[in-house]
Design a protein around this nucleic acid. Structure first.
Lengths: 95, 95
DNA sequence: ATAAAATAGTTTATAAAATAAACCAAAAAT
DNA sequence: ATTTTTGGTTTATTTTATAAACTATTTTAT
């Protein structure tokens, strides 16, 4: 039996971290994700766009008072992909 | 609490696959690893070198009859790294 | 009131990684 | 005897991740 491919979109520390965080909250702000994942704003911005492009998350840009506010949510499709990724991973790390 | 970093050497599908396979066998031949991981020889060759460089595996080059034979084994250091990687990963995938 | 610094990001450039393509030597098959 | 296959390595290309530079607004300090 040959090893199954891991979803390359999820097999990235930062994107996986973001998805992991979004799994357990209703929604999360850019700054929250930045802190929790310990990433730079630039890198996070790029990776969020990729997740959004894939339809794994939605990104909403509004304002908190007068400051820009970016809010992210996992989509149903993203949730499914995450779960499948975890399943596949079990093949690699053993249960 | 902030997410811990994943060992970048192991957070690669092919290298993780190799390590995963080496976890459960005494040793493995190049061709075996190539088949199981569904990789090209070139890519596998490069990634094996990296694992070897890091001291995660040993590579022994001999001959089977008259054909070259490359045999890989996980090291104690590699085993520890793999286990730590799996542990860290749990932070990301829950459980 | 004004300059400096902080917030909340985006865009672009650079470095690193993964993958593919080209190559090599020997052996086996036609 | 030449073509194909096996078992790889090396080099080139593409992709990805990361860092650096930039923008716009806002807050703080002078």
């Amino acid at each position: 039996m040959t090893l199954k491919d891991l979803d390359p979109l999820l097999h990235s520390q930062l994107r996986l971290g973001v998805m992991s965080l979004l799994m357990s909250v209703e929604s999360a702000e850019f700054t929250f994700l930045k802190e929790k994942t310990n990433s730079t704003a630039g890198n996070l911005s790029v990776q969020l766009d990729k997740l959004s492009e894939a339809g794994y998350i939605t990104i909403e840009k509004t304002f908190k008072g007068k400051k820009p506010l970016t809010t992210c949510k996992i989509t149903k499709h993203g949730l499914k992909a995450f779960e499948e990724y975890v399943n596949t991973l079990k093949q690699y790390i053993g249960k």
